[in-house]
Write a protein that binds this DNA or RNA. Structure first.
Lengths: 121, 121
DNA sequence: CCCTTACTTCGACGTCTGTCGATACACCGG
DNA sequence: CCGGTGTATCGACAGACGTCGAAGTAAGGG
């Protein structure tokens, strides 16, 4: 599947934000932009995914092995399914290291979502 | 169409943010917090709702009449349905003034979502 | 009053989504 | 090569969701 490279801290500096879409206060979203953003928000619209995501994000280095975060009250296949959704939405990246698979947060994508919700115009 | 006599700007100051949940980097989300946040993210997980929301948010005063924003490519009952979802999630509030119903953004709720996605620890 | 305009609710329908158990795939240690 | 552990995919199914037209409610104007 996907092959991610860099393993770095999720620390953000100004300018790291992918300028996907302007803040919602800036004007009406185009159909295309709306669909793009909807995919990201949908990824976080499930309690299980939200918990998985927070577990990865709050882990040291912003990355965690599946086995470290799998305890969210659903079966293992379901965990895998949700992690795939988060991956497909661009919020997480994954990397296999030996037996284990590590998931990392994608800071710029998350920052883009936050930026879009910025009401200070 | 309608004539919205602008109320006030949705400008935020520090401290206006409802401290619903800590940033996702701060630790694992509780089951309850995850469910609460999931409802908000789910509200923005649909392209039509995202466009409706952006139309309200980008309107002068952060408020708009339904008739001003209803042109999003779906039927009018569907628009009403989506606005209800946004209202139930706390992202919008509504108010009837005469014949028209005006929707306003709920700045503190939106800010809480943005704060949760803040990766700067 | 009744009619028109603005919006909401209702009922129905097809699609999408979350969940599971079973199964397949990847890696490691012996 | 073989058995064991960690993850991913598959197939199935119930429930949630987006959509519509039709009908209901609210307000204003003749």
């Amino acid at each position: 599947m996907s092959k991610s490279e860099a393993v770095e801290l999720p620390v953000l500096r100004d300018g790291d934000v992918v300028p996907c879409c302007p803040p919602i206060t800036a004007g009406e979203l185009s159909q295309a932009d709306a669909e793009k953003m909807a995919v990201m928000f949908k990824a976080l619209s499930d309690p299980v995914r939200l918990r998985l995501f927070s577990k990865v994000a709050s882990h040291p280095g912003g990355e965690a092995c599946v086995c470290d975060i799998a305890d969210v009250g659903v079966s293992q296949p379901t965990v895998s399914h949700h992690l795939k959704k988060l991956r497909e939405a661009g919020l997480l990246t994954s990397e296999r290291r030996g037996t284990w698979v590590y998931y990392q947060v994608a800071p710029s994508v998350v920052a883009a979502m936050a930026a879009m919700l910025d009401l200070r115009g």
